[in-house]
Design a protein around this nucleic acid. Structure first.
Lengths: 347, 347
DNA sequence: CGACCTTATCTCAGCGCTAACATCTCTTTC
DNA sequence: GAAAGAGATGTTAGCGCTGAGATAAGGTCG
């Protein structure tokens, strides 16, 4: 331990508790820096005894690798870029939870960005995330600006496009068919004997998946020979408040409706609240169906009939597949996490 | 443009579309790398003409700085480490939204970690985030393991401890006094003439702030000469489902209660659902008060009486203050974002 | 027993930036 | 008009790690 080298000297000088580097660990363990690096990353053959000494040295010094240096040297980082359209809708935090769960126990960390459903904003985020040379970028849907698409395709980074599977992904898509989900909603209502079916929705311009479900709904009704008798949409983002008001508006403007399909559970829960306040019996006077299967819907006095989208699984599965292989495979892959009708008491 | 240097040569070889570096930009703009770096970071005096040339070159090449290299060279990164206890409770995504809003327009990006209310887990996250030499670490509350506290204090990184202000922060605390919020809840109920007040709560072991509110509630009642007539807690994390069940249990085990203070809005909304299902008139038979001021509470047929915590502002304010100065100031600062009673119709 | 693996380690040259300092104009000031 | 300063840029030496190749020591085999 009487190593008179500069490093050791500096380290031992109490005045400057320098943060330990690979070099310190290597010196203490009596091996080369590269060997330490290989022990840490578990690469190549290491003698058991060497591994022990290195690990001891790491523990003794409390060494923590400098990720910036590692990223620079390997030109790839342990970052997973995550781009979400929103955080106000609980759905995306749940996807993020899944991503986080998939990342647990790995050295990868999510770096996040929120687009507010804006493609330009997504493009900027992609560019700024690529500056970190992440291992992967996880984003939402298939709609990107041309530039964004070029950046994603051009990078060697793995790409996951979440939530939707109704188009061709760049690398990996994990989600469900919103069109099919919409059709399933229609079939459910039809099977339950409803025939005067209306739609209450939110902003399509930003939420393309909501629009896909709407299309599916119409298709499903069409197949049963039924029309969509009425529809009402808010230009706002979905929320319980908007759901409540949108249903109120729908019912004020139309009569004879026996069921309403909502663009999602937030809207549907809001609708349910309107029914409570307006003394409308659900489902006797009016049936309601939502989409997502949020907890709040299942705690209503009558559990909401809805479609379970597996948000957590979408995030987790995506990460698991992305981490399987750091290299982008020759052809894109699509994972259908499916959906299922939750038979509540509202439709 | 007949530059025969290696860099230009490589770049022009169509076979290998190398990603541009500072060197490429410098060459194209006819200045030194350092000048480009200074233009990008807006450091030191730059001639207008030089700036123009550099920016043109950047645009032409589509140059994006390599953050890893920058971090390594400056031994500090444009990362803000964000450690949240949970993502299932909408409260924390809202804080994250605030953080994100505060970061908008800056080159900083949040890197997140979720502790599940576990301090060991927080410690690991702190260590793994510090490996990125972030500009700041944002975490929750004042409870940390000794090791975690030492790591935070020892780093030169700025630290924000969010949500609570009832203790001494390491560097910056942004939040509200949960004890005072609890007392305010008590005062509100007392002022409205309720005297048989009970408590329905969730897991304290993990959620210390819920416990602080409980203590405040008891203090507040004590000051009015009133007891807490009953209480019931679930060992689970808060949720609408647990709220519903916990209130059911509380009422099954006790009679004569005229008001219930809940540990938060999730629980309170669940409680409201129980009342709806069990035909209990709110607030005539039973008054309810929550905490947080979530949207869902305000969409109930009767808007929930609750305490507004300014989650978004907490996140945003914290970021703004942290970015004001990259160096930790000599003494810690506490920002009270306050709270306010939302006078709903349930208490 | 020399050729040839296999295993375990080391050497060394960067990765793409930034900090610190050096340099070279011009002004300004007395 | 020499000294001093301000403005604008260049030069140089790393930051702490990893990748590729070199090296060395032992085992296998015809």
């Amino acid at each position: 331990m009487t190593d008179s080298s500069l490093l050791a000297e500096e380290r031992s000088s109490l005045s400057m508790p320098e943060t330990p580097t690979l070099a310190h660990v290597a010196r203490l363990a009596g091996v080369s820096e590269n060997t330490v690096s290989r022990v840490i990353r578990d690469k190549g053959p290491i003698a058991t005894e060497t591994r022990r000494r290195v690990n001891d040295a790491i523990a003794q010094l409390g060494y923590v690798p400098n990720r910036a240096a590692g990223s620079l040297a390997s030109s790839s980082s342990l970052i997973i870029g995550v781009i979400l359209p929103s955080l106000s809708n609980i759905v995306f935090p749940e996807v993020l939870q899944g991503i986080n769960a998939g990342l647990a126990g790995t050295p990868y960390r999510p770096m996040i960005g929120v687009t507010d459903y804006d493609l330009e904003s997504e493009q900027h985020l992609i560019s700024s995330l690529l500056a970190w040379q992440p291992a992967a970028i996880i984003t939402t849907g298939f709609a990107h600006t041309d530039t964004a698409r070029r950046m994603l395709e051009g990078s060697r980074v793995r790409i996951a496009e979440l939530m939707d599977i109704d188009d061709r992904p760049i690398d990996l898509a994990v989600g469900l068919s919103h069109r099919q989900a919409g059709r399933a909603m229609a079939r459910h209502l039809v099977n339950r004997g409803y025939s005067k079916i209306a739609y209450a929705g939110h902003d399509w311009a930003s939420d393309r998946r909501a629009y896909a479900r709407y299309q599916g709904l119409r298709e499903g009704l069409g197949e049963a020979g039924l029309p969509l008798v009425a529809e009402c949409r808010t230009e706002q983002a979905s929320s319980t408040l908007e759901g409540r008001e949108t249903l109120a508006r729908l019912l004020a403007e139309n009569t004879g409706i026996d069921a309403v399909a909502f663009s999602n559970d937030d809207m549907a829960v809001g609708g349910f609240m309107h029914c409570l306040a307006a003394n409308i019996s659900v489902p006797e006077d009016l049936a309601l169906i939502g989409f997502n299967g949020l907890e709040i819907g299942q705690v209503l006095p009558k559990p909401l009939t809805t479609v379970l989208s597996n948000r957590f699984a979408i995030g987790k599965t995506a990460v698991e597949i992305l981490l399987e292989d750091t290299k982008r495979p020759p052809d894109a892959r699509i994972i259908d996490t499916g959906f299922s009708i939750i038979e509540g008491a509202t439709a």
